[in-house]
Amino acid sequence: MENEFSYIIELFRKSYGGILTPGEREELERLLENEQLRHVWEELERGDLARESVRNGDLFSCQRGSSEFKRLRKVRKYRKLRQYVAIGVSAAAILLAVNMVFTWLPSLKKNVKQNLFATVPDIFPERNKAYLLLGSGDTVRVTGDKKVFQDKNGAQIKYDNGALAYSAGEEPEEAVYNTLMVPVGGESMVTLADGSKVWLNADTRLRYPTHFTGDERRVELEGEAYFEVKPGSSPFIVHTSEGDVRVLGTSFGVRFFEKEGMLTTLVSGKVLYRGRDSVVLEPGEQVVVTVTGEVRKREVDVDEYVGWKNGTYVFDRRSLEEIMRDLERWYGVKVVFVQPELGALPFTGYIKRYDKINTFLKLLESTGELSYKIEGKNIMLYKK
């Protein structure tokens, strides 16, 4: 164990002197995935660790640190969430770690022995993964391969790198419907026959006609999707069992899961929600339909609800249970709270959608509130 710790210090020394070999540089990058080691490495690089270690630790007040964090949160309250540094609720623990990093050193060896050299599997999202149920009754597995095929009414369907596009054939005598099914851990995108584009998140089903006819353009949604509707003479309607969203040409997100209620978030244009009540939305507004049937409108930061389409999950004072519910769908994992009360902890921040979930878990661990264990596709969260 002493040899392992000495090896880490030697890697640090070589990195500051710029004499690491390619193999040593790769090993150092792996080691610095450990949050504690990275902080120590950064403090040593700046020279702050030596200066800080001669100060009296009693001069630092946890209460003062917590007050300062709250003050900073108040100042930042109205900034865009994309500018936030991901932060957990344990502010005092974070400030204490940053200002007194030298106090980690006595426990660092034990941490290295227990965790650093253990192999933890990386869990990435599977990304492009979906199934298309054709009007003919056939099911096509949508994979990374390019495909061109026709449905029974002659509509040509092209698939390339996760995206479907329709080129309508002759107008059919009756509507022919396809259903795009995205399982847990997948995503897909489809350009409908009218040119409207739909991005589907994990665990989502979209039913739509291969050719729009009549005086409306209607699709049916269960799950989460982002729409960019091409303007047209007939209204575009997204139907869910909790009501319809009616537009002419606009950008918006719809989320409906049976046990979670419904959200419609408007990015641009104007939409009308029609269900138990009727609500008109302006950009930056959202209609919420709760599982109990309550309907209300509110102003939101749209990035928090449609940022996933552009590769970022954003959350503002969201409970860990809610956050993990989304990540379970995206990464195809099962999260267990060993202590149920952990699910109520609120967090503010953002994560990259295509990064491994391990990065987010390490961020959670760095708050000092909890730790985690990965076994296959099961993730256990527990108090430190």
Rank of each mutant, 00 (worst) to 15 (best):
G65L: 02
K77V: 03
R71C: 05
K74T: 09
L81H: 02
Y78C: 05
F60Q: 09
R82W: 12
V85H: 06
K80T: 07
E68D: 08
V75P: 01
R82V: 11
R73K: 03
G65V: 05
V85S: 08
C62T: 13
R79H: 10
R79T: 11
F60I: 14
G88A: 03
K70D: 12
L72P: 00
L72N: 00
S66E: 15
S61D: 00
Y84K: 03
S66M: 12
G88T: 01
R76F: 08
R76L: 15
C62R: 15
S61I: 02
R82Y: 13
L59A: 14
R73T: 00
L59C: 10
K74N: 09
R73F: 03
L81R: 06
E68W: 12
R71D: 07
R82T: 09
E68C: 06
L59M: 13
K74Y: 06
R73Q: 07
A86P: 02
R76N: 04
R82S: 14
K80Y: 03
S61K: 05
R79G: 10
Q83H: 14
Q63D: 15
Q83T: 15
R64K: 15
R76G: 06
G88V: 00
R64V: 10
K74P: 01
Y84C: 03
K70H: 11
E68H: 07
V85N: 01
A86I: 08
L81M: 07
S61G: 01
K70E: 15
R79M: 11
R79E: 12
K74W: 04
I87A: 03
R82H: 13
S66V: 11
